[in-house]
Design a protein around this nucleic acid. Structure first.
Lengths: 341, 341
DNA sequence: TTGAAAGCGCTAACAG
DNA sequence: CTGTTAGCGCTTTCAA
């Protein structure tokens, strides 16, 4: 077996000094053309540009940032790249970034489940913010306070923090709307799958669920509330618990779409069909839920990302913000997972 | 309307100097405890740690990287965060990263369609690689050469480049396998939706399509080959072209799953159903395709990302690579989008 | 065990 | 228009 070994080339990076030397000019002049200053002779500029191209020079971000404190770079910290939630937010962030002259750097706290995500969040935010980034966006932050001398905007934080501007969903109103929709369809036994206990948004969604029920004169039945943690796995377990009740609910409202997918899977495994046997609505609106045909409450995660970028850039440019908390309206997206009874 | 203005706090970042001053000690000693050197008195160390905690000090990545040239940070450049393709790769990369002590920084070339993505790719790679990152992974690179003094591993490059190690799919074999499956099902008129012309992998997939046909003694019919560019949009257009032919194909093999989704949508709009009227297979295997029930050739994009990380880390640690090109096997995933005729 | 000092590559005054 | 110089915050010799 001929295994082709590969040994990396270990050449030093070319610096501004190399360029200056090769062009027979001082570093400051090179720096000037690099930064597009006007006061450089056309001939000199052309020569330097040629040398830069020839040597394949690229400015060292670290060195540059150390001096100029402006990198046109914004950081985004997400709990888990690859989760539908993060992806949706990244899409919006990316779209907003594309309209500006900022670049985007995405940082992930890798394995949120392994060690304490809180410390990681903290760590990364300070790391980015105190270094190369002009400001940072932090999605689904569980952390309360950050150490940063650079602007921070938080996207859909678990708990609201008056110290940092953020975008937020209308969790209460959205959940209420969803449950009211089910009530209008004639449902009276409506189950709820909760999120993690420490999450402010999950709590608000539960409040919305209870409020809608109360408004309709229906008492909240604790046996119809099952505990989840935003994942499909616990969603399935919770749904199984609800659907195997002596008197199961005719509809289930899940704290998020991932949990709703769990309901979908549980129903499938129990030989139940949706929406014939049970109607389902989930909060949030991700691709999988869309393809499954799940009715969802869309709080426009991607818009949250989009808006957060604009807020952050205002802050970076020292413009005051109109609102410290930007609420995104939630909208019910009717698909085929609910039926009238 | 009471708009709550928000003005950012503009405090300077706390540096190692501040810590040294507050602890009544020199910066070098602080640096030592920061880097876990052994030769510091326990008392001094404790005091410094306390001050660090109190002041909320975080080391400046830029400054640190400038001196030490090792940041335990790897960069990933993707063409488009938010595209199913990139997401799949990121998942694998992230999984691998979580097993190491490296952190991941994801860079995106934002809007590939806007300006020339090639220059962007180039730019970001050098930027990351010459600065804060110990090595970079580049996904779906169209660029031929990179300027970098740091290791580079390319994931599923459009065109293979002998200068950089990479992970690659078995494009030819996978496509051949897919078409052979359709042939076994009895299909004789099998359409193909192509990828972009400049893509090596697209070309290989087409070759696989042709090879399978030839092996079965079927002449390649150019009217059954429609041009796409990896997107759902062109996939739909191409599918429409094929399906409205006087003698349409009974099956379509699409260069990627996004194009296959286009086939799905085109069929729907033409009132055709899958697989009754037309069978469909797509290359790659993303969430949407899975939920749609599309039969696909899975080349394990996420495994490509995973493997690439390991290759890169070997390089960073100056270990030679066993293979410069790591081929990932492609596997046919049978779902419900094909039928026997 | 600790401190002083020399840069890493770059930008930004300040002179010429 | 161009060069000189002084750091940005940090690590790392080299002395003490």
């Amino acid at each position: 077996m001929t295994s082709q070994k590969f040994v990396p080339n270990k050449k030093r990076a070319v610096t501004i000094q190399d360029v200056a030397k090769a062009a027979g000019i001082s570093v400051s002049t090179v720096s000037r053309v690099l930064n597009g200053k006007a006061d450089v002779a056309a001939a000199t500029q052309a020569r330097i540009l040629a040398v830069i191209d020839e040597l394949g020079y690229t400015s060292n971000l670290a060195a540059r940032s150390m001096r100029s404190h402006r990198n046109n770079l914004i950081g985004l910290v997400v709990p888990d790249i690859g989760s539908p939630y993060s992806i949706e937010i990244m899409k919006g962030v990316n779209r907003a970034i594309a309209e500006t002259d900022f670049d985007l750097l995405v940082f992930t706290t890798a394995d949120a489940q392994k060690t304490d995500a809180l410390a990681h969040e903290q760590h990364y935010v300070s790391l980015l913010s105190n270094s190369i980034t002009d400001g940072v966006l932090i999605a689904a932050s569980a952390t309360e306070t950050f150490v940063s001398h650079t602007p921070i905007v938080s996207i859909d934080p678990h708990a609201p923090n008056p110290d940092y501007p953020c975008t937020q969903g209308t969790n209460f109103e959205g959940a209420k709307k969803a449950v009211e929709y089910l009530l209008n369809l004639g449902h009276r036994r409506i189950g709820f799958i909760t999120g993690r206990g420490d999450s402010h948004s999950a709590a608000r969604r539960k409040e919305g669920y209870c409020a809608a029920l109360k408004l309709a004169g229906i008492a909240v039945d604790d046996t119809l509330i099952a505990v989840g943690d935003y994942t499909t796995k616990t969603g399935e377990r919770a749904a199984r618990q609800l659907l195997t009740l002596p008197k199961p609910p005719t509809a289930i409202f899940a704290v998020n779409d991932q949990s709703a997918i769990g309901v979908y899977q549980a129903a499938e495994k129990l030989g139940l069909s949706i929406p014939e046997d049970v109607s389902v609505i989930g909060f949030d609106n991700i691709t999988e839920a869309q393809y499954l045909g799940l009715t969802t409450v869309d709080q426009f995660l991607s818009e949250m990302g989009y808006t957060a970028v604009q807020m952050l850039i205002s802050l970076i440019n020292h413009k005051p913000l109109e609102f410290q908390i930007h609420k995104m309206p939630a909208e019910l997206v009717i698909r085929k997972s609910c039926r009238r009874i």
